[in-house]
Design a protein around this nucleic acid. Sequence first.
DNA 1: TTTGGAAATGTAAAATTCACACTTATAAAA
DNA 2: TTTTATAAGTGTGAATTTTACATTTCCAAA
Lengths: 229, 229
Amino acid sequence: MIHSYSSEDKVLLAVDCIIFGFDEEELKILLIKRDFEPERGKWSLMGGFLKKDENLDHAANRILHHLTGINNVYLEQLYNFSKVDRDPVERTLSVSYFALINIAEHNTELTENYSAKWFTLSEAPDLIFDHSKMVKHAISRLRYRASNGPIGFELLPEKFTMRQLQKLYEAILGEELDKRNFINKINSFDILVKLDEKDMSSSRKGSFLYKFDQEKYKRKTDDGFSFKL
Amino acid sequence: MIHSYSSEDKVLLAVDCIIFGFDEEELKILLIKRDFEPERGKWSLMGGFLKKDENLDHAANRILHHLTGINNVYLEQLYNFSKVDRDPVERTLSVSYFALINIAEHNTELTENYSAKWFTLSEAPDLIFDHSKMVKHAISRLRYRASNGPIGFELLPEKFTMRQLQKLYEAILGEELDKRNFINKINSFDILVKLDEKDMSSSRKGSFLYKFDQEKYKRKTDDGFSFKL
DNA sequence: TTTGGAAATGTAAAATTCACACTTATAAAA
DNA sequence: TTTTATAAGTGTGAATTTTACATTTCCAAA
């Protein structure tokens, strides 16, 4: 039995998070303004290095918690970026993760410490290294998820209207959807509970509030059920 | 400007390849019997460590070439497996890649050197570490690719019959397909060229040979065209 | 009691997917 | 040369899914 692969090269492994939020109108991403080298003053994704006693999901959670104060967020590993000179300082690979968080729930003190800011997708500045490529990739994965089933309830308040949900999907997919078709589709998934509470803020009539039913969702996905928007 | 991230942990990064082949009947994977520690004598995926002057795609190609003698293979990065104790020798992360190769084209001398063997999916033995999980994941990605468009022409000879192509899809998807529906679908993609040559080996009538038209395919995919099987 | 405005709701046409069976071409055998 | 055996090749109608589209309902506020 051997005790190390001693002659092999070791590398630095970073984790960079594409953090999506939603403000009832537009899909946004959270970026930080670097006050450290390299590329001080430029915008980038929030990231950090993998520590030797944690796995990647753990690192992504840790990094996200640092910036937002939130734990237990939707996080999904995307891709390993590995171009040799992608980081000018030292050979570093980076695993991208995307996260979905409710903008209202994050700790603004923390984000201010990092000079972080929410940007709509179209207003987002150029990013350091290959971070812009990571964002593109994340958007396409997010769209894929959205057009293949329910996703993104993390981006809404616990109780929400169909209208809000539709707006979220429209923001993610970047296109307008038909109200009736959308509702029919969502109802066909059978993963929402209609409350008998109404939101009166948007109209005189008021619109019913719904909440996401984790149980039903779990049952469906466990049965190998495949959604499709 | 700083010159290193000196205080950060570095890790070993492996690349493991799930190598798919096809023998006109069944989908197979190529596994090696380890004659080195750890887990000598057990079956595993072909893998290797990332070197500091190469990117991951390069490493995957290198590893694949070592084992099969083939270059320029279809390779796709899958996922970074990072559980802290996944490798008992030393903290190692592994990025999985899946590859599609034509069984007939590989260098059998090389594979024999590695005591490598082709296994059908159902006959494959348990693998070391988390390699079985990697294989599962790869199969599901391959199935996804196959049910969303053309893939796997690498697994067939340059000229092939519709029957062969259908058998390949059936092997990948693990289900029988209707001949007419299959042909209609493939034709609707408009990515094959019908040759006026016939393969006489399988029937008295003989069946026309086709080849994959890289150009047409490229044009379609460039246009954001989305296939769907 | 009237009014304004978003919420809620159903249906028909179009497109896609699916299920299904007979004819044809040819080599080999008689 | 005729017959035979075998996989190749081919089209249609039913079922399902997706899309497009307009009117009525509810309620607070005036």
